[in-house]
Design a protein around this nucleic acid. Structure first.
Lengths: 128, 128
DNA sequence: TACAATATACGAGAAACTTCGTTAAACACT
DNA sequence: AGTGTTTAACGAAGTTTCTCGTATATTGTA
């Protein structure tokens, strides 16, 4: 019922902008979008209308120019999409996903590694 | 030129089967598919034809029944899709992705954790 | 050889996603 | 009020993805 669908490629691009500048009008979002590639204003508008219809964004229609906001935080969306990928390509195993992610990318800086290690300790505590 | 596209949702479901049982005929793959849901044989056939056209699978047409194989290993596909998700939702940061993955899922068993820690050590060595 | 079974090829339709033009309403300014 | 600007709504066309029926070719066998 209240289930928000996984955003499509284009919808995700719009959400990425909105997590930075929302609450925002269609105009403001569109200004950001056209910084990398041309699109009509009405295309952006239509996307937001469809996203609102799907429940991906909420909006305030009090003013002439509606004000939009993402329905989910970036973190929640990250969790949702990671979970989806985990189930569809990693047999449901998050550790398999993490191993692959770390293994295929060696250039991770020290503070990030420390952060990961710290979190790992915490996860270890919880799981014992 | 030689670039293999990211598989779609349905294509990925087929690839998951193929990584288990390929090389295989359409018939064999289709038998697996219908174990969870009904689909026509020709649908499976068409999917494989399109996937071959896209370069997602290779095939041997010597025999009457063509024999199909994935063009990419599961590992390579995992890397490709993880990379895509990283770029589209994690600002290109793999550690941010890993943190989110570990944080949102506490039920990871000890041997998996050990494996992750070992890999982390190795990554740390390389990056110094 | 003729018939049945099994395979491929192909195109058409359905569904989801994306783009954009047209229309009408709200607003701002002289 | 009248004109020009900005906005929302809507529908339609283009694209990609998925599903399936029909036609055709190959193989095996009575």
């Amino acid at each position: 019922m209240n289930n928000i669908p996984k955003p499509t490629k284009t919808e995700l691009a719009i959400l990425n902008i909105m997590w930075q500048i929302s609450p925002a009008t269609v105009r403001q979002i569109h200004e950001e979008i056209i910084k990398n590639g041309k699109t009509s204003y009405t295309t952006t508008l239509k996307m937001l209308q469809v996203m609102h219809q799907k429940g991906l964004v909420s909006r305030n229609s009090e003013h002439k120019a509606h004000i939009y906001e993402p329905a989910m935080s970036k973190k929640e969306t990250q969790r949702q999409m990671l979970d989806d990928l985990k189930n569809r390509l990693f047999g449901g195993s998050i550790s398999s996903l993490v191993l692959q992610a770390l293994g295929s990318n060696a250039k991770t800086n020290q503070s990030e590694l420390d952060e990961i290690k710290a979190l790992l300790e915490k996860v270890e505590q919880d799981s014992i």
